[in-house]
Structure formats: C-alpha cells, structure tokens
Design a protein around this nucleic acid. Structure first.
Length: 234
DNA sequence: AGCACA
C-alpha cells in the first residue's frame, strides 16, 4: 500500500489504465506521452487477465522516471487518472550482458532475447512517429534540448497549450497552422508580434498537445532552427 | 486490484 516505499527505478509501473484501449495504441500513446521526460527504451503492455490495465515504461535514466512519476500522477488518460509508481523490478531490456563467468547456454539465450526486445523497442518508436512522418526526415541527429534556461524544462506539467521556441525570423502563424493542424485536437496558433521566434499552439486537451509535441519536436523550418516545443506554463 | 518482458 505504501507505494512511496518502492525504491526509484528506471522503469515506471502504471495502473488504472483504460482497458478498452487496444494494446498497440496504448503502447504508442504511452510512448508519446512519456517521451517528454527522456529517452524511452521500451513500453510493455499485456492484455492478459492478470495484466490488463497496466503498463511499464522503461526510461534510459532514473531521473526521467522520477519526473514522470511526479508530473504525470493522476493524469487523465483515456478518461481515467493514471496511477504511477516505480516498477518493483528491473526491466529485461536493461539487463546488461555481463555474465562473464557463466559461459553456458543461458547467456546466449539472454542476448538473443535482448536483441529481440531491442527490435520491438524500435518498432514502438517507429509507430510512435508514423503519423508525423513530416518530422522524420527533418529531425536533428539526437533529441533536441530546448534552448532557454538551464534545462529543467522537463518538469513543466502537461498543458493543452504548447510553447514553441527557436522559430526562424519570418515564421508566420499560417506556416505553423499548416504544420500543427495535421494533429488531432488542434485549435489555434498564437504569435506575439513583439516577440519573434516564439509561438503558442493550443489543442483541445493535454494528450493531443503531447502527441503533436512528440511528433514535431525538433522540426526544422530552416536547417538552423529546430523547434523547441514544451508545454506552456500555466 | 493487479509488477512483466507474446
């Protein structure tokens, strides 16, 4: 019961998920929603009697998991508030192949499994960006860090309004409209004449804004201007 | 409610 007793883990355990959502959609949506906190290595969701309504999201860093546990606690996801804890055990996708003194078949099998999971993790990433293929060829080499401040941008809680930075001079709201309107729930773009380089883009809800953020993060209107998208502050 | 790795 004391969920606070579970020690920090790179993987978060989510329950109270809407059981009507199909497994692949669930994995994809969780990937989109949580990738704002860091690099996701795997999303596991099973629909067995025992495991439906639950999922595991494995991050590359514990700090990402910690932020996710705090910020997304109770987030209404498919109409149900998510209940998030640290996972109780380490995810298989993290087991390091350092069984040096155990040269038997077990090790080989583990490595095969690891490769298999890696492949599946890549699948998740692909399907996560499949609907935003406009951004794919446009994406920077690695994930882009928003420019301003020190860098705890990741701790801004979700918002249906996105804050866009690093836009090239001459960007118009029309241009952004075209780009963002392709994502469900799009409402409007707002730009401030007095402040070039930034914009606000409003969606109907936090989930839809998250999806668009994930899809267009780092999108380059010019090669020098990868978009830095974060949630607007309330 | 339920902690896995189809």
């Amino acid at each position: 019961m004391l969920t606070a007793d579970i020690p920090p883990n790179q993987t978060i355990y989510i329950k109270n998920l809407n059981e009507k959502v199909k497994k692949e959609e669930l994995r994809r949506s969780l990937y989109c929603l949580f990738s704002q906190y860091g690099r996701i290595l795997d999303v596991v969701a099973l629909k067995t009697q025992k495991l439906r309504g639950q999922a595991w999201v494995c991050f590359s860093e514990v700090t990402a998991a910690s932020n996710a546990v705090r910020q997304m606690q109770g987030f209404p996801f498919y109409d149900k508030p998510m209940r998030i804890q640290y996972a109780k055990t380490k995810s298989d996708c993290l087991v390091e192949a350092e069984g040096v003194y155990d040269p038997n078949a077990k090790k080989k099998k583990k490595q095969e499994e690891k490769a298999e999971r890696k492949r599946r993790a890549e699948e998740v990433q692909q399907s996560a960006t499949a609907n935003g293929s406009a951004a794919d060829n446009n994406r920077g080499p690695t994930s882009f860090r928003p420019a301003s401040g020190g860098g705890d941008q990741e701790t801004i809680p979700p918002n249906n309004i996105l804050f866009i930075q690093n836009l090239p001079h001459g960007t118009t709201s029309m241009m952004l409209h075209v780009l963002f309107q392709q994502y469900p729930g799009f409402k409007e773009v707002r730009m401030v004449e007095a402040k070039p380089g930034i914009a606000f883009v409003e969606f109907e809800d936090d989930i839809q804004s998250s999806m668009a953020m994930q899809a267009l993060q780092g999108f380059k209107i010019t090669p020098q201007n990868p978009m830095a998208i974060s949630f607007a502050k309330k």
